[in-house]
């Protein structure tokens, strides 16, 4: 029985808009739609370069619309979380009056029967506009733009940035070897995998996810599991000065070390240290695992603390990556 883990990854992008897209977005806050001239054509939404010749376009903006003609459309019966409307709507390629190209946007038509190629649509503006494509909530059938009550007015300054905050929810299988490594850790044991071909032993931190011998290009399974020693040597380290990004809980500079366990062939990467000041962290320090007891006796690897043995005298140890 495969175990799956579900996780949601957010992508909170902030994007700079540049002189052309920035102008388009700024104009949206004024409830105006603009294109850019390229020879005989007016390109909407405006691009910085001609799509056919790749020539940079002069900032020759032309007001278009606000109404336009639907050149193609599709009915979205079941909107996704990322779609602009949460009820059935149409996506349409809309050629705004005065434009030579089509803009993709939503049409809030209520019913598929209201949609037709060639129909006329106009924007329904949001009351609060920030300089984003969704300042147009959707287009609606007809010639007249819809302006909302409680309009907060145009942007005071030209819009130069936009937010794009998407998220994707992933469901991925957890390899059996990783489950084994995690179960052993909860009992206070370190586990790894031994390659039956070359005999190399890989720490679970590496092979739990990878479950393969990278040297022999051989998949490994739980039948290759072996218990690992709890002593090893720091091979490399970094001192991290935390910056406050989402999820960062550290406030003071802290160490992360690679630990090569005795008689093991891959390091435990990015490990915390216990009772080892940043100034004393260095390759060669002999360390042992420190466990803490959590809920219901569950063991957790807190980090690595010096054993007091003399340093391992092997300058080449720093050359390892994993």
């Amino acid at each position: 029985m495969t175990t799956y883990v579900t996780s949601t990854v957010r992508f909170p992008y902030k994007r700079s808009l540049g002189p052309v897209i920035g102008h388009f977005m700024t104009e949206l806050t004024h409830q105006r739609l603009v294109g850019i001239r390229s020879g005989e054509r007016v390109i909407v939404p405006p691009l910085e370069w001609d799509p056919d010749t790749a020539q940079a376009l002069a900032p020759d903006f032309v007001e278009v619309g606000p109404a336009g003609t639907v050149r193609s459309w599709t009915w979205v019966a079941q909107p996704s979380a990322q779609h602009p409307l949460d009820r059935p709507f149409a996506f349409a390629l809309i050629e705004l009056d005065g434009a030579s190209t089509a803009l993709l946007h939503a049409v809030d038509a209520g019913d598929i029967a209201a949609m037709a190629t060639g129909m006329r649509v106009a924007p329904r503006w949001r009351a609060e506009r920030v300089g984003h494509l969704t300042d147009i909530e959707a287009f609606v059938p007809g010639e007249q733009p819809v302006a909302p009550a409680g309009d907060t007015g145009p942007a005071a300054e030209p819009v130069t940035m936009m937010n794009y905050d998407a998220s994707i929810t992933y469901t991925t299988p957890v390899p059996a070897t990783q489950q084994l490594v995690l179960r052993a850790a909860a009992e206070g044991r370190l586990t790894g995998l031994r390659c039956p071909t070359c005999g190399r032993v890989y720490s679970g931190a590496y092979t739990g996810l990878q479950n393969a011998c990278p040297v022999c290009a051989l998949p490994l399974g739980t039948e290759h599991a072996v218990d690992l020693p709890e002593t090893g040597t720091i091979t490399n380290y970094t001192i991290i000065t935390p910056v406050q990004y989402p999820g960062q809980t550290e406030t003071e500079p802290f160490a992360r070390v690679h630990v090569l366990l005795d008689d093991v062939d891959s390091v435990m990467a990015y490990q915390p240290v216990v009772d080892l000041p940043n100034a004393d962290v260095r390759p060669g320090v002999r360390v042992r695992a420190v466990w803490t007891t959590g809920e219901e006796g569950r063991q957790e690897l807190a980090g690595w603390t010096p054993t007091g043995e003399p340093d391992l005298d092997d300058p080449s140890i720093v050359n390892r990556i994993f």
Binding site: P45, V76, Q82, P84, A106, M162, Y164, A166
Partner: peptide, 17 residues
Amino acid sequence: PYYLAPLGADALTFAAL
């Protein structure tokens, strides 16, 4: 990321258009 992604335009949308 400016004109298409913010609408959540997916493969099915483009194909249908």
